[in-house]
Amino acid sequence: MARHTHLLGALALLGATLTGLGTASPAAADYAERWCSTAAAPCIQSLSINGVAQSDASPVELVLNGPTDLGGYREVNLELSAAGAAPSPGDVLSVVINTGNAFVPDRMFGRLGLHDVDTWREGDGTHRIRITGTPVTWASGCDPEAAWPWPCPSTSTGDEIVFGADIAMLEDRDDSSIGMHAGTNAAFNGIFFDEQPDGSHALTTELVAPHYYADGTTPIAGAVRYRLSYRQMRSDMGTPNPETLTPGSLSGTINGGTGGGAFSTWHDPDGGGFFIQATGFTFSVKRIKVRPSRITPSRPVITRTQRTTSRKAVLTHTLATPRGAKVTGYQARCTPRRGAIVRSTGSAATKRVVVRGLRPGVSYTCRVAARSKAGTSAWSAKAKVRARVQAR
């Protein structure tokens, strides 16, 4: 079984991208409170809490992580801490960051609690990104220095309140990424594409985190989001036309179906990729597997049959829905009570298949299926074509 390994894109889940409100700040060399009033881009243009504007004199301190001169660096990370009363889960924060000209934010993958992310370009060519969300509780305790799977205590070593995320730049729409989207410090063991019996490749990864928060009784619920580019879905998942995927086109399991959780999928609204999100599972070690479940088109339905002559019939059908492979045409199969089966084909753009070569005076039972590069859809339900005697 072929296995391709990919570490997808912009960030690792245990990247310590954010530290807690009220916790000790990292070394000054790594973090700096970069308000645009005192520093050049990338810098903090504005911050509001529950609609109330803050400033660089606010007791709430918002800082950026990364070299002073990013110059094309792929990430900008936020840290939020508090010298006074800290925002808490339920508060709504909105921060606007000026990333300047060198760093063009294309996509932001972050933590649970994010409400909205907007990016735009000003008239002077500088770029902005606005992140709005609610702080979440973050658990810590895993040992990333150990061998995989990294050991995690059943109870986390501490809880923190965090807000923010990695602001990641995709070099182009063909990039793929994995982004943390949960109130945990889950770590992941790469991304693998394992060949399946049907020739497609399932995406698999492993996540680890403590099982309980520091109180020892509240389970840590996990979530993770992938962005797979269409190019990678074609090359590594065996999906010929990923732009035709529908929400039911992929299925996922956690720990082989025993780990709970739910999956949701959608196309990247900015184009070029597909999002896969798993939510609602608990830790400590979870193996996630996502694979194409119904890659062929949906089953068409015959809505009308018409015997136009003794040797010809027209089958009218619904158009099949592509689910990973575009429809290239239709095929019909008409079976008499006795005798040879008659077959015919139709165009992908029409809802009709003309069947020729029927025998006069013989009735047929017909079915229609959609064809694609990935294979043929399920056959439609049977539909009767009445007998017609040849005119003399």
Rank of each mutant, 00 (worst) to 15 (best):
T99F: 10
C43Y: 03
V342W: 00
G179K: 09
L47C: 00
T321K: 10
A186R: 09
A85S: 10
Y73R: 04
K312A: 13
T316F: 09
F281Y: 15
K326P: 05
P144H: 07
V52E: 10
L207I: 07
I161C: 15
A2S: 14
G90Q: 13
R343Q: 08
G66W: 05
R371K: 13
G271S: 10
G329H: 07
G72N: 03
T119Y: 00
G272R: 08
A209S: 03
D91C: 05
K382G: 14
L315W: 03
T134M: 06
D116E: 11
I178C: 08
V95H: 08
A146M: 01
S156A: 13
P67E: 04
I302Y: 07
S156Q: 06
K384T: 04
A168F: 06
L112M: 14
Q390I: 11
E122V: 04
T258N: 12
V224C: 02
I220M: 03
R74I: 12
D268C: 03
M237T: 02
V104F: 05
P151T: 07
P105V: 04
W148Y: 05
S249E: 01
L93N: 06
T157L: 06
P292H: 02
D175I: 07
S229A: 09
L315H: 01
S154Q: 14
P300T: 00
P67Y: 08
F103L: 11
K384N: 02
V76W: 07
T205Y: 03
R307A: 00
G257V: 05
L170D: 10
H6N: 07
D69C: 11
A85D: 14
R231Q: 09
R343I: 06
I49G: 09
N77R: 12
